[in-house]
Amino acid sequence: MPRADPAEPTGAGPGRGRVTLVGGGPGDPGLITVAGLRALREADVVVTDRLAPQECLAEIPAHAEVIDVAKIPRGEQTSQETINQVLVDQARRGRHVVRFKGGDPYVFGRGGEEVIALTQAGIPVSVVPGVTSSIAAPELAGVPVTHRGLAQGFTVVSGHVAPGDPRSTVDWAALARTGTTLVVLMGVHTLRRICTRLLADGMAPTTPAATIADAGLASQRVVRATLDELPDAVDAAGIGSPAVTVIGAVAGGDLPGTGDLAARGLVR
Results as ranks from 00 to 15, higher is better:
108 F>L: 12
130 G>Y: 12
148 R>F: 15
61 P>S: 01
79 S>K: 13
58 A>D: 12
71 K>F: 13
156 V>H: 04
116 I>L: 15
177 R>T: 14
139 E>W: 09
174 A>I: 09
69 V>M: 13
108 F>R: 09
108 F>Y: 15
116 I>P: 03
89 D>Y: 04
78 T>L: 02
170 V>L: 11
108 F>H: 07
99 R>E: 10
147 H>G: 13
133 S>N: 06
132 T>W: 09
75 G>C: 04
87 L>A: 12
48 T>N: 04
123 I>L: 01
88 V>C: 05
119 T>Y: 01
81 E>K: 10
49 D>N: 06
110 R>I: 07
149 G>V: 11
91 A>W: 12
96 H>T: 10
162 A>P: 01
63 H>A: 15
66 V>C: 02
88 V>P: 03
58 A>N: 00
103 G>K: 06
123 I>G: 00
149 G>P: 12
156 V>Q: 03
93 R>Y: 10
127 V>T: 13
124 P>W: 07
71 K>T: 05
160 H>R: 04
153 G>S: 02
91 A>V: 10
125 V>T: 07
90 Q>V: 11
121 A>F: 08
74 R>C: 14
51 L>S: 02
157 V>D: 03
111 G>T: 06
115 V>D: 04
142 G>V: 05
127 V>R: 04
82 T>W: 03
95 R>C: 09
170 V>A: 04
121 A>T: 06
135 I>M: 07
65 E>W: 11
61 P>D: 06
67 I>P: 08
169 T>M: 14
108 F>C: 11
63 H>F: 07
71 K>C: 02
147 H>Q: 15
176 A>Y: 03
128 V>S: 09
169 T>W: 06
101 K>H: 05
92 R>A: 11
175 L>S: 09
74 R>T: 14
181 T>F: 11
140 L>V: 01
107 V>Y: 07
164 G>Q: 05
145 V>W: 15
80 Q>W: 10
100 F>A: 06
153 G>Y: 02
117 A>S: 12
152 Q>H: 15
84 N>Q: 14
140 L>K: 02
142 G>F: 05
87 L>H: 12
53 P>W: 00
162 A>V: 02
136 A>E: 02
120 Q>C: 01
170 V>E: 09
157 V>S: 00
166 P>G: 07
64 A>L: 02
139 E>N: 09
114 E>V: 02
52 A>K: 01
129 P>D: 00
176 A>V: 00
71 K>D: 09
150 L>N: 11
92 R>Q: 15
150 L>E: 11
135 I>K: 08
70 A>W: 01
64 A>W: 10
101 K>A: 04
74 R>F: 15
165 D>I: 00
135 I>L: 12
137 A>K: 08
148 R>L: 13
181 T>C: 07
132 T>M: 01
151 A>K: 03
102 G>E: 06
145 V>F: 09
128 V>W: 05
140 L>I: 06
136 A>W: 06
